[in-house]
């Protein structure tokens, strides 16, 4: 009897594991070696080329990171853009998703249009926004002149006062479509009967939103905000194609610094340790969010 129990238990466990085996195999093939190599390199002075000399330097790369002012400023900058994206971008995405969810006229058309910015090629987006923000013949300056606000005219991407905001704006414009689609999927998954029951009680839209929509959307909020954090903290291609981190260091972000360490100064060891430090920061932020949301769920 006992042995039979064990057998079914083992069989049941094996079935459970069989669900994750394919994902796990791929993970093992592509990620384990990569991570160990990254970890090993972070303690080395290396130019990243096999056959050349790698010297073990212990924690020196990490110590250097803590003294690297440009690096920490770039982390702060990314965090700032992320804060803007978390609030503004996701707010707009949620509002748009709510409108479309409640079946506004032209729902399908809006659904498609709002997803255009993520679909379009970075080259087109870069060209368009450079043309808008250009300091010589840019559209924005043109409009400002039309409304007699010449004093605000400037090269938006080159002025240290506005460069980061201009980048953040393009990034948020490009990113809200993602949030919109996920929010929409989440909203549509909410059981309509709940709303109908509330309607019977004569509830207006605001209590329905607060008591039905919001609590049920918490996991979706978490997923969208984690995606926003990852996508924005790791922002770089937009910067490479518009300002290249300039003027000075005003639009440098962590990933552009890591790329510079790797290809600019050929310091693979330092690049690896930067990547690990940055990954740990992201991990802590995301995990905190997941734990807090789990707590919220349990309290409900």
């Amino acid at each position: 009897m006992n042995r039979h129990m064990n057998k079914t238990k083992i069989y049941s466990l094996l079935t459970s594991y069989s669900f994750i085996v394919p994902a796990l195999i791929l993970f093992a093939i592509f990620n384990i070696y990569t991570f160990f190599d990254l970890f090993r390199l972070s303690f080395m002075k290396s130019n990243g080329l096999a056959g050349s000399i790698e010297t073990f330097v212990g924690l020196q790369n990490y110590i250097e990171i803590f003294k690297d002012k440009v690096w920490w400023e770039s982390v702060g900058r990314a965090a700032y853009i992320t804060f803007l994206a978390l609030t503004l971008q996701n707010f707009v995405a949620l509002i748009l998703a709510l409108f479309v969810d409640r079946g506004i006229r032209g729902e399908t058309i809006y659904k498609v249009i709002f997803f255009l910015p993520p679909v379009l090629s970075g080259i087109v987006i870069g060209l368009i926004w450079e043309w808008i923000f250009d300091g010589n013949y840019g559209l924005l300056n043109h409009w400002l002149t039309l409304f007699h606000m010449e004093k605000f005219c400037r090269a938006w991407l080159a002025d240290p006062k506005t460069a980061l905001y201009a980048i953040a704006f393009i990034h948020m414009w490009r990113g809200f479509g993602w949030g919109f689609v996920i929010f929409l999927a989440g909203l549509q998954n909410i059981d309509r009967e709940l709303y109908e029951a509330a309607d019977v009680d004569g509830a207006t839209w605001w209590p329905k939103f607060v008591h039905i929509t919001l609590p049920l959307m918490v996991p979706v909020f978490v997923i969208v905000s984690i995606l926003t954090i990852l996508g924005t903290m790791q922002i770089y291609d937009l910067i490479v194609s518009t300002t290249k981190g300039g003027p000075g260091y005003h639009t440098e972000v962590p990933i552009t610094r890591i790329i510079y360490s790797m290809t600019g100064s050929l310091n693979f060891g330092y690049a690896s340790s930067q990547a690990i430090v940055f990954g740990v920061i992201l991990l802590i932020v995301s995990m905190t969010q997941i734990f807090v949301s789990n707590r919220l769920k349990k309290n409900d």
């Binding site: 300091g135 080159a158 194609s241 300039g246």
Partner: peptide, 21 residues
């Protein structure tokens, strides 16, 4: 200097010159 050259990538500088600006 033309406005905004500190973050201007070469491609855009070429465009400004090529269009006679």
């Amino acid at each position: 200097f033309a406005a905004g050259i500190v973050t201007m990538i070469n491609r855009n500088a070429e465009r400004l010159f090529a269009t006679g600006r």
